[in-house]
Design a protein around this nucleic acid. Structure first.
Lengths: 194, 194
DNA sequence: CGCCGAGTTGAACTGAATCAAGAAACGTGG
DNA sequence: CCACGTTTCTTGATTCAGTTCAACTCGGCG
């Protein structure tokens, strides 16, 4: 049941068996139905969540419009990190796009783990760095790439998700209107049919 | 001479006099002439720098084109943080746009300071968080705002810099070609002359 | 069966990119 | 201190991709 957690963490952080047990004892399981929320705008994020199964989208709303900022599959850590770190109200919604199973790690428990060994600090740093790196790459892409290129990149990196995520959400992530993404698809299919 | 360092740090971190002395003893002064580099692509960043006087731009090159990722004035900390943290070759150039004076803090000295008190850890975290926040805001702006809006925001936040930074660099930061920024300026001046 | 949301398609419009040319500011050497 | 050449900025004409608004199709679900 916790195979994913174990597998994922072990590959990046050299936890001892003892540390693994310790970590797992601090996790709290949570099931989220499709279209239900882990966090809404204005609430304060009290957990980071390991996504064991399912699909999550992270988005914010500006002037009535939703803007997707990322999608997460099983094996990733999910949170509104700024809200979580600073105990401030979240700007984002975190929503399940499918039946999903999460393991929550509370702020307090995370602090406790930090005091219990370097490996946990490393985990915390890795989560933060991954986040930083993701934002960084996205910045580059928004400046350098056309929407079409961003869509193609998204396809490559998330081939397994395209059937699961509605086009309008992908459009918003890529930074265009749904109509435009529809045309982009058409263009691409003409060039590389099938 | 170190007034800026002192003033800036004291406002964000509650250093004791002793800690200030300790920090300052680890700083190494460096003068940079206009259009000279603190770091070039491919080199590994070995310092974070406190910008005491002058003007710095941070940019990367892709397919022969420069892309400005930020400008820094006196009072800020400057680094290619990813390169510095992971000891990996920098993707960025760090260039002085004017005669500038820096105080360098080496990686090793930074680690030493970390061991000498919470306040220094706080400093390190603040630097990282500022960076994170900057990237975050930029992401939002690239998705939500038009180039014109981004230019206006840039003007507001950097009113003192507009005469010092060539238009083409601002254009690249805003994400348009110089010709387009020139026209954006024209549009704006028609609406709000002078 | 009929409705509803998601996706596609069309037409008119808009803002930025590109290419090209000219004007203005800058600095470097004579 | 002037003259020349380079860089920076502006302006024009054209092209192109994305937006907007509107209509239509398709598939699922009550």
């Amino acid at each position: 049941m916790l195979d994913n957690v174990k597998e994922n963490l072990l590959t990046h952080v050299n936890f001892t068996d003892e540390e693994i047990v310790n970590l797992i004892s601090k996790l709290e399981s949570k099931l989220l139905k499709k279209n239900h929320f882990l966090l809404r705008e204005g609430e304060t994020g009290k957990h980071v969540a390991f996504l064991n199964k399912g699909l999550i989208r992270l988005y914010y709303v500006k002037e009535g419009k939703e803007h997707n900022s990322g999608f997460f599959r099983s094996g990733s850590w999910v949170s509104e990190y700024a809200s979580f770190l600073h105990k401030k109200p979240s700007l984002f919604y975190i929503e399940a796009l499918d039946e999903t199973e999460l393991f929550l790690l509370s702020y307090d428990n995370m602090q406790k783990l930090y005091h219990q060994g370097k490996a946990f600090e490393r985990l915390g740093r890795l989560i933060a760095e991954n986040l930083f790196h993701a934002y960084f790459k996205r910045n580059m892409s928004l400046i350098l790439d056309s929407p079409e290129e961003r869509y193609l990149t998204f396809l490559k990196e998330n081939a397994s998700l395209i059937e699961l995520i509605p086009l309008k959400h992908i459009a918003s992530y890529v930074g265009v209107e749904p109509e435009s993404l529809s045309r982009i698809r058409k263009r691409i299919n003409k060039l590389q049919p099938k």
